[in-house]
Design a protein around this nucleic acid. Sequence first.
DNA 1: CGTGGTCAAGCGGTA
DNA 2: TACCGCTTGACCACG
Length: 312
Amino acid sequence: MKIRLGYVAISKTLNITTSHTITYTNYKKEKNKEEKLYEIIDKNLTNLEEILMYNIRNNIHFYRMSSAIFPLATHPDIEYNVLETFKKRLEKIGKVINNNKMRVDIHLDQFCVLNSVNKDVVNSTINIIKFYKNMLDTMKLKTYMIMHVGSNTFGKINSISRFINNFNRLEKDTRKMIVLENDDKIFNIKDVLYICKKTKIPMVLDYHHHKCNNDNIKLEEYLEEILKTWDITPKIHLSSPKNQKEFRTHNDYININDFVELETLLRKMNRDIDIMIEAKEKDNALFKLVRELKYKGYKFIDDTTIEIKFDK
DNA sequence: CGTGGTCAAGCGGTA
DNA sequence: TACCGCTTGACCACG
């Protein structure tokens, strides 16, 4: 079995970002509003292209796009069809991704709360989901949007059924593009797995969140079921705590012990896995982990792919 | 230059 | 009750 490693949004090595933005307040002050927006988006897309080339050069097969490439794209008071304007560009980027068989996905922001008790929040969340679906469709990427279950208002049972109800309001094609992740405070792996089985949503396991929020539930007992929610290679998120006191906060790097713990469970599963490194040092953290794993004796097929022996 | 205040957006936890 | 962190922390005014 193989484990591939990926990273999120920013390359620290290249030192470029695809999240250049403008706030609504400053946007309103601009003389050439549209021009200003397009300039920012153009910069973001150029940097995205550069990051993708960097990923290809370094055999990184697995990457999460920023959700801030198109500033203000879903703002209620701004009318602009950004996806139409940048269609050619997005198609080209999509082609690069597909031609190189790279797995690229996206994570919805924290204010996308599908099960909110506030109707306006739900509606804007649905709008945002539609926007990203259109974006991914424009790029011709067969991939997913990752999100959390959301709010806990009126307790878990109510909150879970709110999620399922609102999820079912989405169109069928859109529903197929949603992936759920266990969070670090409320919805643990058991809760999320329950929803995922009911709705046929694939489940991303976040190992660090599980450590933060587990109610003494053992991952061993659920891991196989979690992986089964995927038709394709399952995806797992890995990060390390900043320190004991600020446990929930992400560390700059990955503690190799966290990887080894997780990998020890995974090697009993006999499935290829994609592990996304979520560390503040981004690709640097990924490569640091790779160096340490090699030193420890892990066998690598290429720069970021580990060969693991199935171990019952 | 570096830095502190600000920014469209939700939510729960912590001091 | 106000801030923090998640999220992707970037921009801008000021010194």
